[in-house]
Simulated assay, not measured.
Amino acid sequence: MEHGRLTAQRSKAIRREVNDLCRKVRPVAVDLVDAWDIPPLVLRSPGLVG
């Protein structure tokens, strides 16, 4: 949106889709982290937590 490439409507649609995908992945998130052996230090990275 900042550069005029997305309309507000399209930006909101993208946000809804991302949120929907996150909800779908949430039930298996711990399994994915374990499968990829992601260390706890990385999970607590400032770039990953809001």
Score class of each variant (00 low, 15 high):
29 A>W: 03
38 I>H: 01
1 M>K: 15
42 V>Q: 14
3 H>I: 10
33 V>M: 04
40 P>T: 00
41 L>S: 12
47 G>E: 12
28 V>K: 14
10 R>S: 11
42 V>P: 05
18 V>R: 08
9 Q>P: 02
44 R>F: 07
11 S>I: 03
1 M>R: 15
47 G>V: 04
20 D>N: 10
23 R>H: 12
48 L>C: 03
18 V>Q: 05
4 G>F: 13
34 D>A: 11
15 R>K: 05
40 P>C: 01
24 K>T: 00
32 L>T: 00
25 V>E: 04
6 L>P: 01
42 V>A: 15
27 P>T: 05
21 L>K: 11
39 P>C: 04
21 L>P: 01
44 R>A: 11
39 P>Q: 06
42 V>D: 12
26 R>F: 05
47 G>C: 06
31 D>W: 10
13 A>H: 08
9 Q>D: 10
35 A>K: 14
36 W>R: 14
26 R>K: 12
37 D>H: 14
42 V>N: 09
11 S>Q: 13
22 C>Y: 04
36 W>Y: 14
33 V>L: 05
9 Q>Y: 08
21 L>C: 06
14 I>P: 01
8 A>D: 09
30 V>L: 07
27 P>S: 05
29 A>C: 00
9 Q>A: 09
1 M>F: 14
32 L>Y: 06
47 G>F: 12
48 L>S: 00
5 R>Q: 14
1 M>P: 12
7 T>L: 06
24 K>M: 03
28 V>N: 11
14 I>A: 05
1 M>I: 13
23 R>I: 05
26 R>H: 07
18 V>S: 03
44 R>H: 07
27 P>N: 07
45 S>M: 08
33 V>N: 01
4 G>P: 03
31 D>Q: 13
25 V>R: 10
13 A>C: 02
3 H>P: 04
25 V>H: 05
9 Q>G: 02
47 G>R: 11
47 G>T: 06
41 L>H: 11
22 C>V: 06
17 E>T: 03
13 A>D: 13
5 R>I: 08
38 I>E: 03
34 D>G: 06
44 R>E: 10
19 N>S: 06
38 I>P: 01
45 S>K: 09
50 G>N: 07
24 K>I: 01
9 Q>S: 07
40 P>Y: 04
25 V>A: 05
11 S>P: 02
43 L>F: 02
1 M>W: 15
11 S>G: 04
7 T>S: 14
45 S>H: 15
1 M>H: 15
6 L>C: 04
15 R>Y: 02
13 A>G: 04
25 V>Q: 07
35 A>M: 08
4 G>W: 12
21 L>M: 12
28 V>L: 13
2 E>L: 10
48 L>I: 00
12 K>P: 00
9 Q>E: 15
49 V>E: 09
7 T>G: 02
37 D>Y: 11
45 S>W: 14
1 M>G: 14
8 A>Y: 10
42 V>H: 12
6 L>N: 06
20 D>I: 03
40 P>F: 04
20 D>Q: 12
27 P>R: 08
31 D>R: 13
36 W>S: 09
4 G>N: 07
20 D>P: 01
23 R>N: 13
6 L>E: 09
14 I>L: 14
43 L>C: 04
12 K>D: 10
34 D>C: 08
8 A>Q: 08
41 L>A: 14
13 A>W: 10
